[in-house]
Design a protein around this nucleic acid. Structure first.
Length: 394
DNA sequence: TCTGGGGTCCTAGGACCC
DNA sequence: TCTGGGGTCCTAGGACCC
């Protein structure tokens, strides 16, 4: 089984069997069509509504069992055991795993260690080698050393492709090799970030604990079109729709943006086409999270960067310089009916929450959406849409 | 025909201030 | 021969994460 990225582009999630077939991470789907047919690989478009809902369920169970947690991503959560009354952490982790499995059917693995970086390593080991147990605990000096030796340098949290290349060229192939490196060398070649990882791996916690996610500094919505687009009207619809998503997220965060960026792009994988990347930054007169107002800015910006005669593949909107709603500075010459607008946005958000995103939208967002994403292999929203409930044939 | 999307942090260099 | 010292803010580019 594989799951594809947006627009059914690349394989971004693969079952063990798919990996065994040689399907590498981020392989474009069109390159493996034959393989898919030959081995009857099950293919799914990504379904973030479903994943988000299942994630919430899993996190909720864990939050109910551990008082201090940090949700790190859609499928990862850090647990703070430092003030824990249970001494048998291994046993507790096994119990936690069973609970999650029983209530959601989702297998999880648990890594326990003195720092976040080591815990991530232990987790990887738990997942890789201890599938039946699913828990790995590295506590003593020897256990930590063993963990470091078992971890390839490229598998360390914070070591990406570039650093991996650099380190391999210096004969550093495992985390244990890395820990033995000279401190100054690390500081010089890998900045303070590398230095932090070095300490973390030696058992000294350096990565802070964010129990509630810090407010966002930028929010971006961009998507490839399902097909190449040449008409300005289609791009206007897409840009307006992206703005609607950004503004909704701003309102959710109780934030406003002072600046906006709009960008459009041709397909760089088609060298036979004329290429263009157009982008423009717009300063808002007054910080806002109002969809209608933000769309006006965005379309004005689009007008400046759009050029006829190109085949566009993607458009995006980013809002930046984000401030909390309550610190927005009004302009001396600004007198729109802000309270009324706010009520309208609130109502639209509520309706869309109950009846599905886009149940209510602005006319300029369009209706037919010639540019919409390809999602040919979409699974159902089993857990969030009453009309897509799981059916069982008996 | 066909190649994802959304973020963060750090550094160096330039412009500016007194 | 010779041209200060101590700062801040901004941006672009590069690294990373999921």
């Amino acid at each position: 089984m594989i799951v594809l990225s947006n627009n059914d582009g690349c394989a971004v999630s693969r079952s063990e069997e798919a990996k065994a077939l040689g399907i590498a991470m981020a392989t474009p789907a069109f390159l493996i069509e034959d393989l898919i047919k030959q081995y009857d690989v099950a293919v799914f478009s990504s379904n973030y509504t479903l994943y988000g809902d299942m994630s919430e369920r899993v996190m909720k169970i864990i939050k109910g069992m551990v008082p201090r947690v940090e949700v790190y991503s859609i499928d990862e959560i850090f647990l703070d055991f430092s003030s824990f009354k249970f001494t048998d952490l291994f046993h507790f982790a096994t119990h936690l795993r069973t609970e999650v499995m029983q209530q959601t059917g989702i297998p999880v693995s648990v890594g326990i260690a003195p720092t976040k970086t080591l815990a991530k390593m232990a987790n990887k080991l738990a997942k890789k080698y201890k599938k039946e147990v699913g828990v790995h605990y590295a506590r003593t000096k020897d256990e930590i050393q063993e963990l470091l030796t078992a971890t390839a340098i490229g598998d360390v949290w914070g070591i990406g492709g570039q650093y991996e290349k650099l380190l391999l060229s210096h004969d550093v192939s495992t985390a244990a090799d890395f820990v033995r490196l000279n401190e100054e060398w690390i500081r010089k070649n890998m900045t303070v970030v590398g230095h932090r990882m070095w300490n973390e791996m030696r058992g000294i916690p350096c990565i802070k604990w964010d129990e509630q996610p810090p407010p966002k500094k930028a929010i971006c919505t961009s998507k490839s079109f399902g097909q190449l687009v040449t008409k300005k009207k289609d791009i206007e619809e897409a840009v307006a729709s992206h703005v609607a998503v950004c503004s909704k997220k701003l309102r959710q965060d109780k934030s406003c943006a002072n600046e906006m960026q709009v960008f459009i792009q041709t397909n760089p994988f088609r060298p036979e086409d004329k290429q263009l990347y157009g982008s423009i930054n717009l300063r808002l007169r007054v910080a806002s999270n109002n969809t209608q107002e933000l769309i006006k800015y965005a379309l004005r910006g689009l007008h400046h960067i759009f050029q006829d005669g190109y085949k566009y593949v993607k458009a995006g909107v980013m809002v930046l310089d984000i401030v909390p709603e309550w610190v927005t500075q009004l302009s001396l010459f600004d007198a729109p009916p802000r309270e009324k607008d706010k009520l309208l946005m609130k109502t639209i958000d509520e309706i869309n929450h109950s009846y599905g995103t886009n149940a209510v939208r602005l006319g300029v967002q369009g209706y037919h959406h010639n540019w919409r994403l390809r999602r040919q292999h979409l699974s159902k929203k089993y857990t969030t849409d009453i009309s897509e409930l799981l059916t069982i044939n008996i």
